[in-house]
Every structure is written in structure tokens, then in C-alpha cells.
Computed example of a mutant assay.
Amino acid sequence: MAKAVFHKGQRVYVKPVATWAVIEAVNPQWVKGVEEPLRVSYDTGLGRDFQAHELAAEEKDPHKPDLIETENWRVLRAVNRLAADSREHQHPFPGTYPVVVTDEKDWGGWRVPMAEYDRDPARIEHQSRIIANALRLMRVAREIIEFAQDNPHETPAALMDLARQSEMVLAAIYHDPKPKLDASNVAA
């Protein structure tokens, strides 16, 4: 009996080929009458399927904790000292602008130039709420994935589809592939 060790979208080191790759598909081999797959292979797009013992997961830096676990982003209102009184009546929160802070010292985060805020303040306010709640959405996505993995037979098809979509979103966030150089984008 085997269980999947890696998941779709995960970056792994392929030992026989000595290169890094992203798992494109998890292929369980089922046997009739058995509840768990007999073996699981992984398609990395390198020409053949690999077994778990041929792959190695990326090691996380123990000194760098996961953002989902440690951070709590929030919207902080900063005073807009340069705003003219004539513009203030258009703003949802006159005299201020949103800053999404990502650390305890209220330094790091997302800020918007005043000209951008003046152009469409409602849009910028909406974006700030989206960014501030992104970590909460990532936590929800992770919980959906874990529930579907822990209860594969009890998970409804619609929820399983949401789990797959959540996996793809988190994979895109954590494993953004580096752009490959080709002749068209190399300066001569």
C-alpha cells in the first residue's frame, strides 16, 4: 500500500536526472478491492514517471517561517498631509489613505502614490482590503486541501474540485518558476 508523498505543483529534485522539476501529475496505481493504491508515481514532464524514492522535496529554511502561520496583515490609515481640501470630498475616508502593513512595526507593506489614489479612491480601498485578507484566504485554501487529502472518499466532487484549484493557487504563490532566458530577451 502506498500514499502520495508529493503533490501536484510541488517543486522536487529528481535524483536520476539531477535536476529540479515541478510535479505535473500524481499517478496512483489502483487494484480492485483495495482501498489504497498499490503504488504512486509522479509525472514531472521529464519523459517518464518517477517513484517517491527518486524524488526529494525542497527543504524549507528553518529560520524563515511560513507567512501563513506567522503574519497578520491589516489596513492602517495614514494621514494624507498633502491632500488639497478640494479633493477630500471625493475620498471615502477624507484626509487619509490606506496602507496595508505586513509587520509588527507598521513599516513594511503596500502603499499607493497619492496621484493613483486620487484617480480612483474606491478601487484602491477595495484593493487594500483584498491584499489585507489574502493570508486569510490562503489559510482557507490550505484547510480545504488538507480536508480533501485526509478524507478523499467522503469529500464531495465539488469540494474536491475546489481543493484542486486551491492547490494550483498555492503552488503558483509558493513555486513561481523563474523566467527562462532565450535569444529574444538577452541583450546583445
Rank of each mutant, 00 (worst) to 15 (best):
Q29D: 03
D106Q: 10
F50A: 01
E58I: 15
G47H: 05
A78P: 00
I68R: 13
I23Q: 02
I23R: 01
D118Y: 08
H153R: 04
S166R: 10
T44W: 02
R11K: 11
V34T: 14
R77F: 06
R111C: 08
R111F: 09
E125W: 07
E59I: 15
W107P: 00
M1E: 06
I131L: 14
I145E: 09
V17N: 01
V75N: 06
E58V: 15
F50W: 10
T96H: 15
E24L: 03
L76N: 14
L137T: 09
P16M: 07
P37S: 11
Y42D: 10
D118W: 06
D176E: 11
I145P: 08
E125R: 04
A4W: 04
F93G: 00
A52M: 02
R11D: 05
L162V: 09
S166E: 11
Q10V: 04
R11H: 07
N27M: 11
P177K: 08
V100N: 09
V40S: 04
Y117T: 02
R142S: 12
E167F: 01
M160H: 13
A115Q: 03
N27A: 08
F147S: 11
F6A: 05
D49H: 09
R123K: 13
L162N: 12
S86P: 03
R48L: 03
E36H: 12
Q90C: 07
S166P: 05
K32Q: 08
A21H: 01
Y13T: 01
L135Q: 10
H126F: 04
K3Y: 04
A56N: 07
Y117V: 02
R164I: 15
S41G: 07
Y97N: 11
L159P: 08
K3N: 13
A25V: 02
T102K: 15
A122Y: 14
N133F: 08
M160T: 14
R136Q: 11
R11L: 14
R136V: 15
Q29F: 06
I144R: 09
D161E: 15
R129W: 09
P113V: 02
A188V: 08
D61R: 04
E69N: 14
V14A: 03
H7Y: 05
Q149T: 03
I173Y: 14
P62V: 09
F147T: 12
A78V: 10
E146D: 12
A115Y: 05
H153K: 05
L170Q: 10
M114P: 00
E146P: 06
Q127M: 14
M114D: 06
R48C: 03
A4H: 06
H91D: 15
D118K: 07
H63E: 11
D120T: 11
G109A: 00
M168S: 15
I124E: 07
V112K: 00
A115W: 05
I145R: 12
S41Y: 12
G33Y: 06
V34G: 01
N27S: 11
D106R: 09
F147Q: 13
H126W: 14
Q127F: 11
P179C: 08
R39T: 12
E71V: 02
W20I: 09
H126P: 00
D120N: 13
M1L: 12
K105E: 13
D61F: 14
Y174H: 13
P16G: 03
Q90W: 05
G33V: 07
Q51M: 10
N27P: 00
K180Q: 06
A158N: 14
T102E: 11
A134Q: 11
E116A: 12
P62D: 07
V100H: 13
A188P: 15
E54D: 02
F50E: 01
N80T: 00
I131G: 00
M114T: 07
